[in-house]
Structures are given as C-alpha cells and as structure tokens.
Design a protein around this nucleic acid. Sequence first.
DNA 1: TCTAAACCTGAGTGATTTACTTGGTATTTA
DNA 2: TAAATACCAAGTAAATCACTCAGGTTTAGA
Lengths: 159, 159
Amino acid sequence: MRLSTKGRYAVTAMLDLALKNDQGPVTLAEISENQGISLSYLEQLFAALRAKQLVRGVRGPGGGYYLARGSDEISIADIICAVDEWVEFTRCGGREDCQDGDRCLTHTLWNELSKEIFNFLSRISLAELVKKGSGIKNVQKGFGEDAPPQIQEAKPVAA
Amino acid sequence: MRLSTKGRYAVTAMLDLALKNDQGPVTLAEISENQGISLSYLEQLFAALRAKQLVRGVRGPGGGYYLARGSDEISIADIICAVDEWVEFTRCGGREDCQDGDRCLTHTLWNELSKEIFNFLSRISLAELVKKGSGIKNVQKGFGEDAPPQIQEAKPVAA
DNA sequence: TCTAAACCTGAGTGATTTACTTGGTATTTA
DNA sequence: TAAATACCAAGTAAATCACTCAGGTTTAGA
C-alpha cells in the first residue's frame, strides 16, 4: 500500500465528483479550480481512474466526468490503487531465499500490516465520506459523532 | 499520513528489533544484513527514530539499539511519523479563504479520512504484530484468526 | 593508552517520482 | 463550423528516495 500526495489528489478529486454526482458531468477545469490542482495533472490522474473503471468521461461541451459506479461502490482503496501502483515490498518475495526465517518473518509481518491497511481503506466508501460530510457542511464540527466503532480521538505525534 | 518505502524500511527494522528485544542490543549491521538495507541509510532512519524516543542506542563493542519503550507501547503510526514527516494537505489550511464551501468540504473530508488512517495505525502496536508473527512462524498461514474485530479478509484489487 | 566496534554527522548523488507544461487530437454540442 | 470538452504524448524542474562517502565521537576490551 502506498499513500502519497498523488493518492490524496485523486481521493480529493473523487470526493468533489461524488458531491456533485447528481448534477451532471463535472469538468476537470471545475475540479482544477476547486481543488487547486493543475488541469493536466488531473488529466493524468483521471486517465488512471478511467482505466480502472472508476469514472466515465463525456466529451464535448457540457461534458465532463462522472462516477462510473455508485459512490457506495467505490472505496478509498480503489482510488488510491488506481493512481498509485501497488508495489510489492518483500525482497525475498515469493521465493525461497529466506535463510534464517527472521528475514521472512518481518517481511510477512509487513505484508500483513499492509493488507490490514488496504482492508481498512476498502471498507470506507466515497458515499460514507460524503454522508458524514453533509453533516459537517451544516454543523461544521460534528464529525465522528456517529462514526464507525473503530474511530477514536486523534492523537497527532508531537513534532 | 504518508506511507512510503521509507516508512516500510523503518517498520521492518523496528520489527526486527522487537523480535530480538530480549536478546540485548541489536546492531545496525545485523539489521542491514538481515533486511537488505544499507547501513548508512539505517543510521539515518534510526537517527529519526531515536529523536522521537522510539529507540535507544548503546555505544561501544557489544552495543547496538533496543526499543526505548515496550513493544506494546510503540505503534506503527509512531514509527511512520518518525521517519516520514506529516505534511498538511489542505491548501486553504486553517485560513478563511474557502469561498464556496465545497472546497473546504472536500478538504475536511480528506483530513478526517487521514485522521482515521492515523488512528487505525495508532492502534496497531509492534507487540501485536510480533504476537501474530509468532503464530505465523509456526503455522505459516494462520494470520488473522484471532485478529482484532476490524480486520477482515483481504480482497486485493484486480490489477 | 591504543584500537576496534559501534554510533553520529553531514555532504553528495543517481534514480525515481511529483506536479506541471506544452502542444496537440478526437468528439460532441450549439 | 466554432467552441468546449475529453483524451493523448512528450518533456521538465523540483523534490524525494535510497544510498554512498568521508569523516567524526564514544565506549569497551587488550
């Protein structure tokens, strides 16, 4: 699992799309202005999102992009995986060149952790975020009040 | 939240440390050989880990590194945050230059998601991973059987 | 005290990635 | 046809990554 700024841009743009999904296609120019992302960079991101069947483009005036599926059928993991390749980490990979066991163990542990992160992000859909967002939009601070059980208070690390 | 190979190296190295924590200090040379990471790169990573009070170094012959706290008191988020700076994403930040509300909304949504990921990683300790790992070491595939409630079956995206 | 083992510092570097630019082509609507 | 939009390809400056090099300093054992 990779979680870079590229993935953030994609998630942010997709959120923008999900918020306006019932208002016809959304142009990249709109998202570009809205999110402060350059148009061409968005084009690259959306090329990847389109390749993974997450969005569909409509050409011509009045065109733009809309979600290829319902926002409840698109997970955050889907989006991040579309734009950020999933690179395998293990050096020993699937091969048998782990001599002492420990090397393989730490790699196995990392892979499992990576899978857990992936699963976690797979269970968060765009629709869920948007649904919570509609609360924010009005309340401006009530986020997390009826949040999923696994969500707790943030405890950012002291820099 | 950033999750790059740098963070992976750090987590992997810390896992190595946790696994041998009761066997005295672990040298970087050992980890370097074990994990296939260059010694100097490890030194850089461990400088950051030491600065964040996650490890302590013992100098001189027979020295090395050991965990500064119990492995149950060190979370994956701690490790990743130590080596990968946490960069704020929002362009509008805390300022009031969000005109239309939507811009701010998507940013708020991203921030909340980011917090959720952070919280998720905060709840996974080194000790937990190692504990599960000792199962793997023997069973080689029983991971996740008595996993925390939020962990489900992996469903990797079709590439 | 000498010396080797270990940590510590800082500078530099090729490769890769990011975020973006330029300059188009294709398609659709008015 | 003209304009708006998606689509496509190539290039690029800056940043980051993963690493190397060249020195330290600190400690322990001879």
